[in-house]
Design a protein around this nucleic acid. Structure first.
Lengths: 226, 226
DNA sequence: GGCATTGTCAAGTGTTCACTTGAATAGTAT
DNA sequence: ATACTATTCAAGTGAACACTTGACAATGCC
């Protein structure tokens, strides 16, 4: 009891959880998984790594208790072990941005920073407008898989890489609100910049689907809900 | 903008903050620093490491933006860079305990687990009793330095390793409430077990000084406030 | 059954990590 | 200046890490 050895083992245990997130690629994986479960193959493509390497990263995350696998046929789907992991990941991002100017600068660069004067919209405001059935198009620009795993009620799915091709599906008359994975996801900022340049009336939800859900608002899982 | 390289750099940045806590000894350092600033020498003793090694760990924590140094004469005192770091550290502990049974078991072992049937007391309750000047002794069993860096109002300081020698200073007639660094600190559990075996009326505050402060209650810095 | 597909495991390689040792620096006291 | 202290820096060593490659296991399809 309260021996030095036990204390070391305990703190090594805490450290192991931090170690799971101490690699950029693993951090990316957690960020993606916050948007729903994914197969190993799909995650590997997302983080630009080999399947074997991605699998090994996933083992590390699993041993740290952050993710759990589910087998379905020849596929293995991983998801976050608990919703708390999202909160923890967000806390880490917050600390990092706050205490390190260089990271804040990278965020600006990544999101396309100041030159984008697209108006923002809060979750609360958007929810109000969805409930009173305002004429607006909620646009989910994440990959198809993430849309299917859960999206904002009534949202339309056009993954960013298809936007140029499918932009005509969007009405110029209505207000468009785009969103993606979260405040540090570049998909929606890219989309809104493009749409704005094409003359659409577009705003952006700063937060993403995981934050929306964490705030207590409902996600829809219907295959298509125009 | 939103290039793969920028994204990698950004997530590597997040990962670097996690990496700072990915070592058991550094985690211990952060845990101690949550109770106030400390010199390198003092930290080295606390984590049972050489001074050179401790200094290097501190450089890593500093580069991650988690701690900052302050020079005073020949001494260098380190402290947490922001109060948010305490919150983040607590979040990490929470995630680790929740998602990993083995860690929960280590916690039990470290704290001296179930055999201790000392009554607990919440911050709220204790604050009420301090305010209405109940006859109770609030006992701080952390090292002298931490007591001096900030303690509960009216608390008496008897570091755990001096408790046997100085136990006679405590009145058997009054209720004693011991506390230390936090819910995962073994000092107060050890102290309450000992005091109870000697026939004192003793309770334990589950949280520690950093939590007390984070909850908005005042800490006292008076050198001695019996 | 054979065979393709998805994922995991094992071994190998260059890099980073944690720690030690001993020298260099910054500040204080004499 | 000189001696002394607390800390940092630089170099070295064995262990762990991140990634690759190729073999193996699990599942489903024919």
């Amino acid at each position: 009891m309260s021996t030095r050895a036990t204390k070391e083992a305990l703190f090594d245990g805490f450290a192991q959880v931090a170690k799971a997130l101490s690699n950029g690629r693993r951090a990316e994986i957690v960020d993606v998984l916050a948007n729903g479960e994914r197969s190993v193959e799909s995650l590997a493509a997302e983080v630009h790594q080999s399947i074997a390497n991605t699998s090994q990263h996933l083992q590390i995350l699993k041993n740290a208790g952050l993710v759990t696998p589910r087998r379905n046929g020849t596929f293995v789907y991983y998801r976050l072990a608990s919703p708390d992991v999202v909160g923890f990941w967000r806390a880490l991002q917050g600390i990092a941005r706050e205490s390190r100017g260089d990271i804040e600068r990278l965020v600006d660069e990544y999101l396309g920073d100041g030159s984008d004067d697209v108006e923002g919209l809060t979750k609360e405001e958007l929810w109000k407008r969805i409930k009173r059935k305002d004429k607006l198009v909620v646009l989910d620009v994440r990959p198809q898989e993430e849309y299917e795993a859960g999206h904002l009620p009534g949202a339309v799915s056009i993954p960013l890489h298809q936007l140029k091709k499918r932009v005509k599906e969007l009405p110029k008359s209505k207000q468009i609100v785009a969103y993606c994975r979260g405040p540090l996801c570049a998909l929606a900022p890219d989309a809104t910049r493009y749409l704005k340049s094409k003359g659409y009336r577009v705003k952006r939800l700063a937060e993403g689907a995981p934050d929306w859900e964490a705030a207590g608002y409902p996600l829809s899982r219907a295959t298509d809900d125009k």
